[in-house]
């Protein structure tokens, strides 16, 4: 009996090299590997119909510009950056982005404190719901700062706003999130009692 061996492309470098040569199989493998993660990124920035479009266009952009990846840093980080930038560009092009308030406010989020055990019990889906409830400007800055890890200076450059505005947006986003989480925690305690 002849046993056929299927060559699976597991190594990321060989996968990228195959994509550069135009291998559709390698593209499919890369899609299977990162599709869910990148869809999650898009969902954090955009609501559902727009997130799907941004997801598809983001992958197309990855395949078209894969030759620009020089191997510095992780490929997933490079892809994620492409998807984030595309989501921001999508927001800008659709004139949805950021009616960002320009006044700088002091950090009001520190007034509220949420217990650590309550935060640890929060489910991912619930956190996503909270993110979706945020205004777009707040959500974008919170995503970029809290989850992606950009600094205020970087966020100011990306969104064409000042650092103070970025800080203000972040503080307001935190305050709203803490309020919602506290209310949710109180409701759950009441229901238990």
């Amino acid at each position: 009996m002849i046993r056929l061996r299927k060559r699976s492309i597991t190594d990321e470098a060989s996968l990228i090299a195959a994509i550069r040569k135009g291998s559709e199989k390698a593209m499919s493998a890369l899609y299977e590997r990162y599709a869910a993660k990148m869809m999650g990124v898009c969902r954090r920035y955009l609501p559902m119909p727009e997130a799907e479009d941004a997801f598809i266009e983001g992958f197309q952009r990855v395949f078209q510009h894969i030759e620009q990846y020089k191997g510095e840093g992780s490929f997933e980080g490079w892809m994620r950056r492409i998807f984030v930038n595309h989501c921001l560009q999508y927001l800008r092009s659709k004139s949805r982005l950021l009616s960002v308030e320009t006044e700088e406010t002091e950090a009001v989020a520190d007034e509220l404190h949420v217990a650590g055990d309550v935060l640890a019990q929060l489910q991912e889906e619930y956190l996503m719901e909270l993110l979706e409830r945020l205004p777009k400007g707040y959500r974008t800055v919170f995503n970029l700062y809290a989850i992606e890890g950009f600094t205020h200076a970087e966020i100011a450059g990306m969104l064409n706003i000042s650092e103070g505005t970025s800080k203000s947006q972040l503080a307001k986003a935190r305050k709203m999130l803490q309020t919602w989480i506290t209310e949710e925690a109180q409701c759950s305690r009441t229901n238990i009692l």
Binding site: S28, K37, G40, R43, E124, L127
Partner: peptide
């Protein structure tokens, strides 16, 4: 709050829509 969201949503995965690969 940042830490909680970062831990739980940094690698949050959403299943891609059907037919997305064909469009890509």
């Amino acid at each position: 709050i940042d830490e909680v969201f970062r831990k739980k949503l940094k690698h949050y995965q959403v299943p891609p829509p059907a037919g997305a690969w064909e469009r890509i």
